[in-house]
Design a binder for these strands. Structure first.
Lengths: 144, 144
DNA sequence: TTGACACCGTTGCATTTGCAATGAACAGTG
DNA sequence: CACTGTTCATTGCAAATGCAACGGTGTCAA
């Protein structure tokens, strides 16, 4: 008996990937041209702004960035003058990333853009917002 | 007045990206070792299995794959003996991708794996499934 | 028919990516 | 102290990626 053809358009991993790409592109479009920041750099900045002096390891575990990707993003951000890299004196294997004044100014703008974008998405998805967040909680925590 | 710190963990583009990565990894884990297929190749296979003789352009527009990525995936699938590449005789710019017998056998296995995985996800997300799909519809069609 | 233009798949190439290996630094044991 | 094993950030390197450019093909109007 021939099965109903498999529909990629209904396959959740595919749908989620496409949606995530659109969301990231929508966000990137709002800041890339003006600030020249990549997604990896954006994640590093958010975590540094939130948590203060953080190590590469922190970033790796907290914002889902490959260790080498985090390291390279931090290097670029330092070169651009947004963060400072210091050796952690209590454990000299670690580095301490800190925002410069320029980095703090950048984050003022970027977080405002992000908040606006989130508000737009919340409005767009209002009828399903709670369920969507519950679904994302499940997908984050359950074994898939 | 200092704003409440920006929470990346609540930012939808980030959450969706992380969830999509987990879903894709969960799926890939179920077929990669046994069949040695990449995500791009999987998408090409699904579309060829569903639509018959398809061109690279078809794949590009239907399953969200970069043109060059689709082309290279098709080349690898041909080398592996899963598809056949033919010049479309009515328009010689196009190619016709078709499943070989071996490719059809592969798809039997792969679609079964995908159906099982989808069933598992549906069960896991049952309470939010309808809302999740509605949200994904919105994210696919709306301007973000 | 010719010419200008658009579209197709492939490929060259610079950049990015992910993984493993490296060297430096710590922790704990004998 | 010496030794072993672990953890950290970086880097080397092969593979993947994305974009533009190319040659080949079709279309349509002059």
């Amino acid at each position: 008996m021939p099965q109903r053809p498999f529909e990629l358009a209904e396959f959740l991993p595919y749908r989620m990937t496409v949606a995530a790409e659109r969301l990231s592109a929508g966000m990137a479009r709002r800041y890339r041209d003006e600030f020249g920041i990549s997604v990896a750099e954006w994640r590093v900045l958010v975590h540094v702004a939130d948590a203060g002096a953080v190590s590469i390891r922190d970033i790796h575990s907290r914002v889902h960035l490959e260790k080498s990707k985090a390291s390279r993003a931090a290097t670029r951000l330092e070169a651009a003058g947004y963060v400072t890299k210091t050796v952690n004196e209590t454990d000299r294997r670690l580095i301490s990333l800190t925002l410069t004044d320029q980095g703090q100014a950048l984050m003022q703008d970027l977080t405002q853009i992000a908040r606006d974008y989130q508000a737009r998405l919340d409005a767009l998805l209002a009828p399903q917002l709670d369920a969507l967040n519950a679904a994302l909680d499940t997908l984050e925590t359950q074994d898939l």
